[in-house]
């Protein structure tokens, strides 16, 4: 049986709860709470991507677009129409779901490289729209003045409060996704990954499952985008470019695609690399990402979550 242990999830939740407190105690890492907000936002996307790519075996190089749609729907509807941010977040997810359905329906009939190319092209088109539809999106200069979030009149105006909001969403998405993986639905997804002819011969509606997971992962990315927009109070197109889609792939490859924990570990590590540890490399950071992807694919095909297994293997020999 595929069982995902509960204890590590509880420990992880505890870690999240005390993280801001720990960060406050040590001046050198005080700003880590802020970085963790971004790590959480990326984590929301990688959790969905892990289900889509690692478990179901369908590649997407266009998820930056869904992330961007969420962010821009929130930005445009709050700034230009003064709508309630939470409503905008929901509208963003609905719009993203519709777009994902529209894009996914023809694309998911394609296999392997073709699916990669289709999602890649989609990502590029959306990026161009963010840049060119200046009246709506503000073009390359982006949009400022996006309001923050508040719950029942209680403003989420500090980094710590926003940290708990974002990670609350991450934990909810994580537990929901873990449940899906452990259910009959998850079994069908892994079956599709292993053999589509056998899955459909056993009554699995392969296409429907693929679409469902594609839309789910897109909606999570959209939620992440809205959270990003309301946190930074500013969006511009470069956040949602092709490189970000690739960065997402590097995250789940580094963490390990075939295990939902890989999504969390990968998102966390790459976020800290890009916000904190890679400053020395300046614009050469792209080379570091490339090197990570190369080394992981060659030496750690199961990512960092596969390391304990490798070590155990050494001892058994």
């Amino acid at each position: 049986m595929l069982r995902i242990a509960k204890l590590p999830i509880a420990i992880f939740a505890l870690f999240i709860i005390i993280f801001p407190w720990i960060a406050r105690q040590i001046p050198a890492i005080e700003h880590y709470t802020d970085i963790m907000v971004f790590a959480g936002i990326y984590c929301l996307i990688t959790i969905g991507l892990s289900l889509l790519m690692g478990y179901t075996g369908q590649i997407s190089i266009g998820h930056a677009a869904f992330y961007g749609i969420g962010a821009y729907v929130s930005a445009i509807l709050t700034v230009r129409y003064g709508l309630n941010p939470w409503a905008c977040m929901c509208i963003g997810m609905a719009v993203t779901a519709a777009v994902a359905l529209l894009v996914g329906a023809p694309s998911l009939k394609l296999k392997g490289h073709y699916l990669a190319m289709a999602t890649l092209a989609f990502g590029i088109i959306i990026f161009i729209i963010f840049n060119e539809e200046t009246e709506w999106t503000g073009g390359p200069d982006g949009m400022a003045g996006i309001p923050g979030l508040s719950i029942f009149g209680f403003d989420l105006d500090s980094v710590e409060k926003y940290f708990y909001l974002v990670w609350g969403f991450v934990l909810a998405a994580f537990v929901f996704t873990v449940n899906v993986i452990q259910s009959g639905t998850g079994r069908a997804l892994r079956a599709i990954h292993a053999s589509e002819p056998a899955s459909s011969a056993m009554g699995v509606d392969v296409f429907r499952f693929k679409i469902m997971i594609f839309v789910y992962s897109a909606v999570l990315a959209s939620l992440a985008g809205s959270l990003y927009a309301h946190y930074l109070n500013f969006v511009n197109p470069s956040t949602f470019d092709l490189f970000f889609s690739i960065k997402l792939l590097i995250m789940i490859a580094l963490g390990g695609m075939h295990n939902i924990w890989g999504a969390v570990i990968g998102a966390g590590l790459i976020t800290f690399l890009s916000y904190e540890w890679l400053h020395y490399f300046e614009e050469f950071d792209v080379i570091v990402y490339g090197a990570i992807l190369l080394l992981v694919t060659i030496f750690l095909p199961n990512g960092l979550v596969g390391v304990p297994g490798i070590v155990k293997g050494w001892f058994r020999r």
């Binding site: 049986m1 595929l2 929901f176 996704t177 449940n179 899906v180 259910s183 009959g184 639905t185 998850g186 079994r187 069908a188 892994r190 079956a191 990954h193 292993a194 053999s195 056998a198 899955s199 056993m202 009554g203 699995v204 469902m212 789910y216």
Partner: peptide, 27 residues
């Protein structure tokens, strides 16, 4: 076969035509 799954899971998948759970019910 679904090589990435256990022997039991392979047969459990075979039950897909008879017993199904929706995405939401699973989550």
């Amino acid at each position: 076969l679904f090589g990435n799954m256990t022997v039991l899971e392979n047969v459990m998948l075979g039950c897909h035509t008879r017993v199904r759970t929706s995405f939401m019910a699973s989550g």
